[in-house]
């Protein structure tokens, strides 16, 4: 048996809604930083959205960027402080819609940073608007009849955009079960190990529930991810120090 104590980086109770996946992902990230003894050195880059609620509760140094620009900010931090672990923590509306360009170009340049991208398929903090990652037919406050893919395109799969780039690590997990949570922890650890060994850009996308804006009970939102969301966003490791193949 192993002790399971609250990681040191979690300095206050989180401020997320009941059943929000951010709370689980915050804890996994804090555990990995503690286990790798990086908590004191880590610098986080965040932008806008539910993710920035953790600025008060997650005890590492943070800098907040304009909406979507966390990857560009993390690039600057890492180039000034190459010895520090630098990561971005963003939601899907932030990183894959408003900051899509910054996120993609950080990967394109193979910046030696770690990106934690939390995909719940919706703009959460602003009240549940449709995001590029929303599923076909998904009802949101800006698509009350369901997302029409003829008008708005197919859901954005960021892994498909990145997997052929020259990067260090790329994986997608979910937080729907003990097994999946343990896998996400392994992915985040691999991502930070890639960065600390100078292996280039590492990104972990995590499928996360938003019961409030999905208007589902928390247990049903986990089932929704397992039964529906993962058919559009398959889980697994896509690049593992495999960037060399493109050189």
């Amino acid at each position: 048996m192993v002790e399971r104590l609250i990681p040191t980086a979690l300095v206050e109770d989180n401020k997320f809604c009941p059943g929000c996946g951010h709370g689980i992902i915050n804890r996994i990230l804090a555990e990995v930083l503690d286990e790798m003894k990086l908590t004191d050195k880590a610098i986080g880059s965040m932008a806008v959205g539910c993710a920035c609620l953790m600025v008060d509760t997650f005890g590492v140094d943070w800098i907040q960027s304009p909406h979507g620009r966390a990857a560009a900010l993390a690039t600057g931090i890492k180039r000034c402080r190459p010895e520090n672990p630098v990561f971005t923590y963003q939601g899907d509306g932030d990183s894959m819609s408003i900051g899509f360009s910054e996120t993609m170009y950080a990967a394109f340049r193979n910046e030696n940073i770690t990106a934690i991208l939390v995909n719940n398929g919706i703009f959460g903090m602003t009240g549940g608007q449709m995001a590029p990652t929303s599923l076909p037919g998904q009802k949101t406050v800006t698509s009350p009849m369901g997302r029409n893919t003829d008008l708005t395109g197919q859901p954005l799969n960021i892994i498909n955009q990145m997997k052929d780039l020259n990067i260090g690590y790329l994986a997608r997990g979910s937080v729907t079960s003990i097994k999946n949570i343990n896998r996400v922890k392994k992915y985040i650890r691999n991502a930070f190990e890639t960065q600390m060994s100078g292996g280039g850009y590492s990104m972990v996308e995590i499928l996360s529930p938003c019961p409030t804006n999905w208007k589902m009970m928390p247990d049903k939102s986990l089932e929704h991810i397992d039964n529906t969301v993962t058919t559009y966003y398959p889980l697994g490791e896509y690049v593992k120090k495999g960037g060399d193949s493109n050189e």
Binding site: M1, E3, L5, N14, I178
Partner: peptide, 19 residues
């Protein structure tokens, strides 16, 4: 039995397992 499953799934850090 102190297996820690609740610690792993909880988003709000309600559970801790101590030895």
């Amino acid at each position: 039995i102190g297996c820690g499953s609740c610690y792993t799934i909880c988003p709000d850090y309600v559970f801790e397992i101590k030895e």
